[in-house]
């Protein structure tokens, strides 16, 4: 882990939904291997910003993006970028756990299977290895090892969310985007998933959107405060919460609006 290298860099990033501008000149550098959380009131553009990093915004059709987003030094908005490859490299975890309505095994192997040409299809043993590795990494293996062929949608929400993280891992992503990954979970499940995210720190660059101040504070290294489509402040989490430089940041974290 090279603590100082930059994993995600946005430059003059502007984004419009139709005629509505959602992001204004966002310049952001996210360091590799740490957890960076994006905070701010509803509608401030933090989810939009996150969704620029794997270009999943584009499926809406009426989205226009200007500026650049570099991931591991490559502009992902360049002509020659293949979305399938980008999304292999940049995984995403959604607000509501969304395991696919297939077995636990098939969920974890889904990514590998769609990205492997028929000729190089993994053998059963290789697949089992990938499966166990990914489930162990998210601390789910012991829970589910006896029911790998059960439908994933029958798991508890906590297990579902862990599975959603696990299914990214066989693709060996460098960045994992998390869009309020705990907001559909109860406090106990939230704690468990947060713990998992903390453990994954170092191996992956994690960008975490959260509504929950306490979560940003305890579960991230750096914090980005956004307001009305603009990036207001980006510092180490401890500094942001203790000595915010901008008065708007201070107002927000003290709960004066939000």
């Amino acid at each position: 882990m090279v603590a100082s290298s930059i994993s995600v860099r946005t430059q003059k990033l502007n984004l419009w939904y139709g005629t509505f501008q959602a992001l204004f000149d966002v310049d952001l550098e996210i360091k590799q291997g740490i957890i960076t959380s994006l905070i701010g009131p509803s509608g401030c553009g933090k989810s939009t910003l996150l969704r620029c990093m794997n270009r999943i915004n584009e499926r809406l059709g009426y989205v226009r993006t200007e500026g650049r987003v570099d991931i591991d030094g490559q502009n992902i908005y360049a002509e020659e970028i293949e979305l399938a490859q980008l999304r292999k490299q940049v995984g995403m975890v959604f607000q509501r756990p969304n395991p696919l309505p297939i077995s636990i095994r098939d969920n974890v192997l889904f990514g590998t299977r769609i990205h492997t040409p028929k000729a190089d299809k993994l053998s059963k043993e290789q697949e089992e290895e990938v499966l166990e590795g990914a489930l162990r990494e998210v601390l789910l293996w012991d829970n589910v090892k006896d029911r790998l062929d059960d439908t994933a949608t029958r798991l508890s929400l906590e297990e579902q969310q862990k599975l959603c993280i696990a299914r990214l891992l066989p693709l060996k992503p460098s960045v994992i985007l998390m869009d309020e990954p705990c907001s559909a979970l109860d406090p106990k499940a939230t704690e468990a998933v947060e713990e998992l995210i903390w453990q994954m720190r170092g191996t992956y660059t994690i960008v975490l959107v959260t509504h929950n101040m306490a979560q940003a504070r305890r579960a991230s290294d750096e914090c980005v405060f956004m307001l009305m489509g603009k990036m207001i402040e980006h510092t180490e989490t401890a500094d942001l919460f203790v000595t915010p430089k901008d008065s708007r940041t201070a107002d927000y974290i003290e709960g004066r609006y939000g």
Partner: peptide, 27 residues
């Protein structure tokens, strides 16, 4: 078929056809 399934597939780099063939149609 819930939109969330499609998003999950796309976020893993699946094409629309892979999504339709493996998830949308069977369901």
């Amino acid at each position: 078929v819930p939109q969330a399934f499609r998003e999950a597939c796309w976020a893993l780099g699946a094409t629309k056809w892979q999504t339709i063939r493996r998830i949308v149609l069977p369901n």
